[in-house]
Design a protein around this nucleic acid. Sequence first.
RNA 1: AGGCGGGUAGCUCAGUUGGGAGAGCGCCGCCCUUACAAGGCGGAGGUCGCGGGUUCAAGUCCCGCCCCGCCUACCA
Length: 1170
Amino acid sequence: MQELKEYNPKDIEEKWSKFWIEKALYHIEKPDKRRKFSVVIPPPNVTGSLHMGHALNATLQDIIVRWQRMKGRDCVWVPGFDHAGIATQYVVEKQLAKEGKSRLELGREEFLKKVWEWVPKSRNAIRTQLTKLGVSVDWKRERFTLDEGFSRAVRKAFRTLYEEGLIYRAEYIVNWCPKDLTALSDLEVEYEEEPGALWYIKYPIVDENGHDTGEFITVATTRPETMLGDTAVAVNPNDERYKHLVGKKARLPLVNWKRKDLKGNEVDNLIPIIADERVKMDFGTGAVKITPAHDPLDFEIGKTHNLPFVKVIDKTAKMTENAGDFAGMDRYEAREAIVARLRELELLEKEEEITHSVGHCYRCKTVIEPMVSVQWFVKVSDPKIRDISIKVVEEGIKESHEKELFLQLAEVEELTLTIPVTDKGRHVAVIVLDKNTKILAGKREGELAYIYYPKGDEKSLELAKKLANKIKNFEFFAVYEGSPKVIVFGNEELLPPDTYLVLYDGKEVKLYKLQGKELRPVETLAKGEADLEVAQKSIKVRVERVKQVEEEEKKVRFIPEHWKKFYLEWMYNLKDWCISRQIWWGHRIPVWYCKDCGNINVFTDDDFDRAYDKIIFNLIADGKIKNEFTPEEIEQILKSPHFVHPEMTVLDFYKKFVFHRYFSTDITADSLRLFFTQEANPMAMLTPGVSTRGLYRYDSQKKKWKMVLRCKRCRSENLEQETDVLDTWFSSALWPFGVFGWPENTEDLKNLYPTDLLVTGFDIIFFWVARMIMMGTHFMKDIPFHDVYVHALVRDKFGRKMSKTLGNVIDPLDIIEKYGADALRFTLAILTVQGRDIKLAEEKFEGYKHFANKIWNASRYVLMNTPEDFLARLPYMAPLKPEDKWIITRLNETAEAVNKALSEYQYSQAAHAIYEFFWSDYCDWYIEFTKERIYKKPPEGEGEEVEQLKMQIENERTTALYTLHYVLEKALRILHPFMPYITEELWHKLPSAEGESISLKEFSEKNEEEIFTEDKEKVERLKEIITAIRSLRADLQIKPNQKIKAAYKTESELSKKVIEEFKHHILNLAKLESFEEVSERPKDTVATFSRDTEIYIYTEGQVDVEKLIQSYEKKREKLLKELDRVNKKLSNENFLKKAPVEVVEKEKQIKEELENDLKKVEEILKVLKS
RNA sequence: AGGCGGGUAGCUCAGUUGGGAGAGCGCCGCCCUUACAAGGCGGAGGUCGCGGGUUCAAGUCCCGCCCCGCCUACCA
């Protein structure tokens, strides 16, 4: 007997999440490539705390990962987070602003220190939150986009792309944020509809001599301030209104000062009128002013027509010197001033109010200024990147490679196998297959290597080959005809004779029955390491060369599928990706410009060959040390705890996560000094074995060492590093292989890439998913993931986005606090339907906390009735009753439903199936059924008969308990991926639970041998009868606890059988005193019916006849309506002719049922009315 | 403007090859029955947005329309 306290999620959740982490339960050091299931977590920003979207994302992944793990996969789920360049910088700048400081005052170095101080706080918060959710990630593999390994990977990627000509630097018009002072990619700009104005400005036409002709050309603009940078007026070549003006010039109003283009050349204020197809005739006046330096379309037109580029707005959105009289003004100030001036000069034809959409910085919401500047781009439009990224999604790439295997074929006369299974060195089982063993096939190094088969029996050989092809994961398998002997924990058992397949997949030994081509799983025999002891008689071995074609499909699948189109549309119109950002927080571009010859040098640690050099270079490139440093500084950094993995030092991190090998035992200030001295020693050339690379130089005044980088072209030391950093998404794009150690060719990379699943929100398909596909296919020559599950957006109950400004956010942590992580997870899962956003209200969590509570209490019932010696009693249990078989059947059906749903990512369906089973089947019905056996009191008295009766009662009780346990344990496993905590807690309390954690047990599968159709039907019928009685009781206002008499009449054998067999249940569950068969309706009874059975309840006292009549009238109407529909159908000749026979038959059956019901209702009504 | 998704019970939503309209919450009635009142039992509630078509048969497929949401593009 075990007492369970009240359900309190807090108590158990903390305990188990700690347990999982401390035991590193979800860490697999060396996953097996053949059965791995790898996932990388979409790294949350370090900026915020987790919101509901993150909780959803993590939950959906964890459900699949836990499920796959239980199905025997080696799951590796890598957590991490990204540095979120602009967002983080923005947050820290805002904090500084509160102290009245700006980053520019602080300087780059000091500012970055501040960021590094701030980041761990946020990152720890995220880590805690994920932990609370119960995610089964492998914390030992945690990564950060700015850790040493990742930074190195980023430089490597940059360099590779640059050398391949896929990264270029160019002058281009970009989206500029004048507040954050950086360029933004197209995706980082948010457009919003805003009221604005369209100003019509008259530009005077001049003749060849520059004199006004008196004619004007009117242009329309929303941004008059940019007119100062105009270098042309454009019209459509087909526009009759302006044809005569093309080729002439206009005088740019206001501008009577000198303007200079980007190269410093003077630009005239007489600007050409040009013709260009891109000008729309029907917009504005059909004539458009061209400001190539401040408008994307004008930029394009300026390029084609070779127009000068005049910048009139600077990076802080102030007017430049080119703006003459308006220089120094803010752009909006200038706008007003210019409009006023034009009005004075009567050059303003009119002003029109319009709404137009204006681009804003996604982060600070400042209006974007399109601006020409020099930026770095990835040429993603190059077919080398784009085409393959389209193809892997559009149709997939099939690759087949042919392999040659040397297969040993051993013809044997007699073959005997013994398969001992050991678990952590301890023998747990032995399977003995005597000389009737037909086939043995086995692998070496993952490839089919040998087959033993009976001499001359080519059929068996063929079967062996066929099976080898069909079964993916096996170390060896054997086919056996006869009765195998199985010894588990010393108990010997002989299985019934038949043909068996014994399969070992490296983890567990499974037994199948072989029926023709079908494999039917029987059971898992044992888990652990299996050996093979082979004894054979007369062996003849030959070697066969087998050519094996392995087909591999590289295809990224979007779920739901329509996101595929979304992705492809974008890829078809791909523009090059601006990757430089003028901020400080991020990966500084690894480019060093030569100030002497202008060469662009890209350095990575590939340029250096020793571990010391590599580390020092990386420290410099990461900004961890300056170009000049002391050995002590380096030692201090290397010996400090690592940021992501504080359990190791930075140096250890370098060894493990950057270089993936142990190159040296230690690096100290002394060893560094020695190294530098040798390197820098001019006498080195006299010392054998010491290089003269001159890579380090000592400054005796500063007492610092310097690493000397030289221009790769002219050897000049006069280098200057690029100040820009890379777009955060550039590093995120490397995530699925970067976390596994790329660019090193690590075991993890070989075993875990491509990953199996990516779960993410649609809003970052372009930002992230697309870029991972581009970079993955480019660097790894393979897709980054097979499935992309795009989850919904979490909205509030009115369907609005959750946002802090609206104040409608639901914080997952609050929910966990109030309802528990299990309830949170289950709620999110059950609300997750493909292709639909989630509208969330707090009440929902409450409902599913009730579900958790229900399971808790059901388990309490089971446990409080379980005697200490339960396991010892099991051998004496009585045979299963039909209701036991019914619940077992339902359990198996549920397992099947959940497996199927999860394999299709139908979270809601999976959750519903287990919910329904637990609550309705197990709690509402099954537990109620068992109460009779559980609570039955043994008879009083003595004597043999009494003893026997006592024993029988005891054994039947054991059966009920056995079934309760058996089903509960398996159901908990099915529920585990959704509610990991409560299932873990309860599972450990079950006496039948063996092992470390429910999360490592196998997931329940449907077992055909546990489907008892007949028992299921009988119990379903029983439920109907009970419900019918309860319903009538309620109609008659009979109190639930009042026992009453009832009777029934039926012609049906089945119903009669069910009622007699389960009369005790009917009496108990419908609270009846008696339920006897009668041949006619007894007096003083009210009738109801269930299908073919009439049920009579004896009434005592008042009956509200009117109410009953109403109720039956309603039923009658409903039946008539239904009957009408069916009759119409059945009287339709076409229906009878064209519909499939089954459908017609079914319809006829329905009709019969309806008519029967109607007849009964009418009879009842007649009696009631009389 | 184009594309996508949605419109089913009071609310939130299921409904997978077209074949008797479902769940949860809410509501109403009865009940503290020894797992659970965070519960049990019973019940009411629906022209499946509108119109047309295909079909023996349409919530489900096709066409048109109306709302709602989102995305993309244009916006001189």
